[in-house]
Write a protein that binds this DNA or RNA. Structure first.
Lengths: 154, 154
DNA sequence: AAAAATAGTTGACAAAATCAACTATTTTTA
DNA sequence: TAAAAATAGTTGATTTTGTCAACTATTTTT
């Protein structure tokens, strides 16, 4: 490797850092726009994330949700209390561990989540419909590519 | 186009929507991790965004910042007051429009922002250093590709 | 059996964000 | 050009969101 190559490589990293940060700012905006419909709904972002977890795995405990979402346990406890009041979530104390309780969405809870979920899908569809089929494929390819590469760094 | 092709295309869109939402969840986590160092700093995320705008263009007015970041004007007004108290920002009433004021980072403000900025760069570098050179190039290519495609939809 | 760890709840509080009312200008319009 | 409407920014009141620490009740470790 020649001196000039080293220079190019070192210079390139700076460019890469700048490009990645530009992407991060850009995509923060995209996510913010997409989150808008949730902020307009009756639920906050953290609430929707909790509902998401409850929807996708049954009988989670609060501790498990805390581990997944890295959310404060007091905050979660109160959130779950609200959910129970609204009949979105039911709680059953564990037979095996008297400290833990298993949480599930009720029928109403699943319906609520599905409505939010459908609205989110709709938003993405609206974006895709403004693109050519090729661009859709390329876009998704890029996203999958990013996930693949960044998942290696664990 | 045959019936089965239509089926594949329609089916594909659902898959694309799911893939994009999976990416959004994934990247929300990435951004959250990257934001951590800011949350550990003396500044909040909105504060850093405002500092970012002030750093990158001189003599912005509060209204311009509001238009860019879509932030509440009362919230911003108070934030700017804090910045002035900390001598990070200086304000000069406009000669042309007596309602508007031009904002600038002070030397201290620029220094503060640059420190935060350097820490952010460091984080990205740390990630890149765990990747091969090829993966770095591919990663940045994907990000640029996403920006290009999504910028078309405006 | 005692000590340490874990699950979850609760109270007190702090930070973040929103909303509406208000002053002082500038722009529009009739 | 005078009145009305719009805009820039400030301030007060309030709500929402999130954090921290103390606490009870279990379970696990030593």
């Amino acid at each position: 490797m020649t001196k000039s190559t080293i220079f190019i490589v070192l210079g390139m990293q700076k460019k890469h850092v700048a490009d990645i940060r530009a992407f991060n700012r850009f995509y923060t905006g995209v996510l913010g726009l997409l989150d808008q419909h949730i902020l307009d709904s009756r639920y906050s972002l953290p609430e929707v994330r909790v509902l998401y977890e409850l929807y996708h795995s049954v009988n989670l405990t609060a501790s498990e949700i805390i581990a997944i979402l890295r959310i404060d346990k007091g905050y979660l406890s109160r959130m779950l209390l609200q959910f129970q009041k609204k009949k979105l979530v039911s709680k059953k104390w564990s037979a095996r561990d008297g400290r833990a309780a298993h949480l599930s969405l009720t029928e109403k809870g699943r319906n609520e989540f599905e409505a939010l979920n459908e609205a989110s899908n709709r938003q993405i569809k609206d974006i895709l419909e403004r693109l050519t089929e090729d661009d859709c494929n390329i876009l998704v390819g890029h996203m999958t590519g990013i996930r693949t590469i960044l998942s290696k760094t664990k």
